Computed example of a mutant assay.
Amino acid sequence: MNLHVLRLFYYVALTGSVTKASEKLHISQPAISAQIRKFEKDNDIKLLQIQGRGLVLTPLGNKLIKPLEKLFAIEEQVRYLIEDYHNYPEGKLRIAGNYLATSVLIPKWASLFKQQFSGVEVHISTVNSHNAIEKLINFEADVAIYSDIGVPFIDADLFESRELYRDEYLFVVAPGHKYSSQEVTLEEIASEPFIMREEGSAARERLFQQCRELEINPPKIELQFNGLNETIQAVMAGYGVSFVSSLIAKPLFKRGVLARVDVPGISSANSILLGSRKREHQEEFVNEFISLVFKHLDTVAESL
Rank of each mutant, 00 (worst) to 15 (best):
F294M: 06
K254N: 13
I272L: 03
V56Q: 10
P193L: 14
E140N: 09
S276E: 08
E183C: 09
Y179C: 15
K295Q: 05
E183S: 09
L304M: 07
Q233V: 07
R37E: 08
L258H: 02
S129N: 01
P175W: 11
K135Y: 10
L71N: 07
I74P: 08
I45Q: 08
G275C: 00
L25K: 09
G275M: 01
L164G: 04
D142S: 09
P264T: 14
R37F: 05
A34K: 14
E199I: 12
A34L: 12
E69G: 14
A31L: 14
L273G: 03
G54I: 02
F153L: 02
I82V: 13
Q115K: 01
Q115G: 04
I106M: 06
L112N: 06
E90T: 08
D157Y: 14
S303H: 00
Q224I: 10
A144V: 12
L55I: 01
P107A: 00
L304G: 04
R277T: 02
P175G: 02
N98L: 05
K41S: 11
S201A: 01
V5D: 06
G91E: 03
I65D: 05
I82T: 11
S242A: 00
N98M: 07
Q209C: 14
L60M: 03
S181H: 05
V286A: 13
L170I: 01
L8K: 12
A132R: 04
S180E: 06
R277K: 05
S180D: 07
G91V: 00
E83Q: 09
F171E: 02
E160R: 05
K254W: 02
K63L: 12
S17G: 07
L136Y: 03
D142G: 10
M1Y: 09
E75K: 13
N270E: 12
F159K: 01
S268P: 10
I74E: 15
N229K: 15
L60V: 08
S245C: 05
T299E: 04
Q49N: 15
R279T: 10
A190T: 14
P175H: 08
K114E: 07
I137C: 03
A73G: 11
D142Q: 04
R279M: 13
P251V: 03
S276Y: 09
F208Y: 05
T58V: 06
E280H: 13
S267C: 13
I106K: 02
R260D: 10
Q224D: 02
R94N: 12
K24A: 11
D157K: 13
F294A: 07
K70R: 14
P89L: 01
E283R: 13
L214A: 10
F285M: 06
S161W: 12
P107W: 00
E121C: 10
A31W: 15
F9Q: 09
L93F: 02
F208N: 08
I124Y: 02
K278S: 01
S268H: 08
E121P: 13
A202E: 06
H26F: 05
K295I: 04
S291A: 06
E205Y: 11
S246I: 03
K250G: 12
E75R: 10
F159C: 05
V12C: 11
L228T: 11
F9P: 09
I154R: 11
D142F: 03
E183Q: 03
Q182R: 11
N229P: 07
G240A: 03
I74C: 15
Y146T: 13
E76I: 00
I133T: 06
V120H: 12
